[in-house]
Amino acid sequence: MIHTDKLSKNFVVKKETVEAVKAVNIDVAPGELVAFLGPNGAGKSTTLRMLTTLLRPTSGTATVAGVNVVSDPAGVRARIGYIGQGNGGGHSFRVIDELIMQGRFYGMNTADAKARAEELLKSLDLTDLAKRTVIKLSGGQRRRMDVALGLMHSPRLLFLDEPSTGMDPQNRANLWEHITRMRAEYGTTIVLTTHYMDEADTMSERVIVIDHGQIIADDTAARLKANLAGDLLAVEVAAGSAQDVRGLLGRAAAGGELQENASDGVVRFRLRLPEGARLAPALLKEMNDAGAPAQSLELKPPTLDDVFLELTGRNLREGANR
């Protein structure tokens, strides 16, 4: 569905060339749900905008839905749906009018466009607002309208740029319900960008981690977490027996960092333990045998944030600054 070869984009800012996207190769098969994950400014949206023909690549090629983005941008646009970061509805227009016109823009006839608009309004819970002007909608309602606009022509490939930014958790869940339902019904291929790691984690089958304009990881969320991060284990032992287990825990961390905090006569060790849930019981027994029984234990499964930290040494929320 998507194939890129060394796709690159440079911007010239104050006479300085900034390489926003550096020769990325992306392949997306039909029916996949892929998330571009990365901090703000990593190049996710720039990549997405090149794939949707809203930006012209500096070099490299991209074929989207079988069409070259540079030689036939209108052909690409006719085959894809795009839901951008902003709100797509014109402020003074009525919701239903905008939806029908959107269908017309994609070559649907008025009757089909009207039927499709009504169907989408119903499934997105917007039927009562059909004759409202866009400016009178709430933020969540506008975002749902954006989804309706993007789906009007039933695209086989849908791009979403930061779809749930600024939405409350309930609306976010709602939005995802629609996207997953649509995917189940029509087999739509979906590519989205997000800087919400939990969104990429729970919703996408495949996560492409982008940082400084490059792809630094590309796999399922589960495998990324298992291979790159491991569970976070925290154990507390009495201060007096800390030296008895330090070596033991260090070996368990397998080259990873072993953190140590002492307070109120207790020492708290923290380490990454791949397959932690399976290995923790044996580790507890070893600690017992060493004469330093654990007083408490905490085991946290890894998040994609941990994966990003492991890959870049930075937190996702810290942004793209070096």
């Binding site: 951008g84 902003g86 709100n87």
Partner: peptide, 9 residues
Amino acid sequence: TGSYERILA
């Protein structure tokens, strides 16, 4: 707003 961009797409 994003309206121009939506139409551009």
